[in-house]
Amino acid sequence: MDSHSYRTPLGRARGLGSAHTGVGRFIGERATSVALVPLSLWAIYAGLKIAPLGYDGAVAFLQSPLNAVLAVLLIAVSVSHMDMGMRVIIEDYIHKPLSKVVLLLLSTGVSWTFGALGIVSVLKVALISAGTH
């Protein structure tokens, strides 16, 4: 701190405090964590279930509405959670402003692009009957 500054301590602190957006992120991280407890266990169940089935079995699995909905929720909540988690890691370890912004944009872009691809693919398999191939 510059001891010769004429600015008061209050003046220096103004604008550097809470951005008032932390609570939303804190709650979002916890809410997605709680949702992923059952969803990640279902992911293991689903993986074990479709592993021996082959193409037709995997299609039939996703044509059950419950499985399709859980798959969409799994991908959407996971992408949201991993976007927030990777943001924390990047902000903790990468301090060069340009590198940080590039990595944050890249991580968010990659996670949501793959997430959208996954969700649209699940919906396509779930909603379009297997006979059209």
Binding site: S111, L117, G118
Partner: peptide, 15 residues
């Protein structure tokens, strides 16, 4: 994080 990308890839391949 990588695992979710792999799962999204699996769904894409299935579609």
């Amino acid at each position: 994080y990588v695992g979710v990308l792999i799962v999204a890839g699996l769904a894409t391949a299935l579609a």
